[in-house]
Amino acid sequence: MSSRDKILSAVAANQPRLSPLPDLDILKGGEINVVEKFAEVLTAIGGKVIDIATLDEVSAYIETNTTAGQRVVNLLSEPLGMRAPQVDIKDLPHTLDNIELAILQADMGIAENGAVWLNENRLGQRVTPFICQHLVVVLDKSNIVPTMHHAYEKIGNEKYGFATFIAGPSKTADIEQSLVLGAHGSRSMTVFLRDI
């Protein structure tokens, strides 16, 4: 008997009588100001939130916050100027090690925890938002939902190969519970909230 069969038959023999799944709708909670809440929480967890009307403000931000020698990659479907070229980074993920700043489009934000949802097809390479030193995300305000329940409703049965929620810069408090921003992922995270 294979281990698989051993395990499955032991589990089948030992599991209790079937008990039902609960209804999740009651967990959704009431109406909230999603943009306000999202900004409040993300700021509290170490992220930066900036309101913008157009992407020109993002280009300006990048000009100010990077130097010509630093590698900046723009993974939005719109251009951002010369400092942040649009790239197709289907090459080896290891070559992305020197990315100083990456700009990505998030399809959804979650107000209760300041997280954004990043689908693989927005990342170029899966490692992009983790390996860059600084992460910049553009999010349309109309795509912010109140809770994780709403988020998974929106995601539905979508077939992705990889996707992730990212809430703020990487961090650790492993050394005597002192919070340090910038562990193994990005050192900072800035979300530009677009009025759409």
């Binding site: 967990l27 967890i45 300041g114 983790f130 994780m148 329940h149 809430a167 990487s170 961090k171 992922g185």
Partner: peptide, 23 residues
Amino acid sequence: LGVFLRLLARSATGQPITTYSSH
């Protein structure tokens, strides 16, 4: 996942969610 990702970090470290929740 919505239920558990809402509970996990709040219970563990008092954060609304871990920085990364990769699927």
